[in-house]
Amino acid sequence: MSYAVGDELPPFTIVSVSPEAMKQWAVFLADPNPIHLDVEVVKAKGLGDRVINQGPINVAYMMNMLMQAFPGGTIKAMDSRFLDNVYGGDSAVVTGKVTAIEGNAVTCEFALDVKGRGTVNAGTAIVQI
């Protein structure tokens, strides 16, 4: 698959953010923060009425978009900014665009958008193809 500067990358869609995955990630990350596990804690802290996705899962979604856009490619660098929370049950999509190409290095910008709330994560990456 080849791209030119300005090309949009195929989107990666998360139909519904999974609270069950958050339970798995609490183990993966060795971090049992209850805001990812217990909706009553989220409510008590005034953070909403659904469990909150761990930030690294959101980064993984964005990496998935890049890996599927560049089969066989390798992410060499990536910077992500966390702008808002992603909640259990959210419908989300990662989109991206090629911003530069130098030899085998493709620079992209990307965003994770949640249906109804806009961009919650965004960043840039360099993929070696």
Binding site: W25, F28, P56, A60, M63, N64
Partner: peptide, 22 residues
């Protein structure tokens, strides 16, 4: 971890790059 984010693990022995954080 791969499946929890909506993809299958790579067949070439590479791990999901999000392990950088994990």
């Amino acid at each position: 971890m791969c499946r929890s984010t909506g993809i299958e693990p790579a067949a070439d022995g590479t791990a999901h790059p999000i392990y950088y954080y994990v």
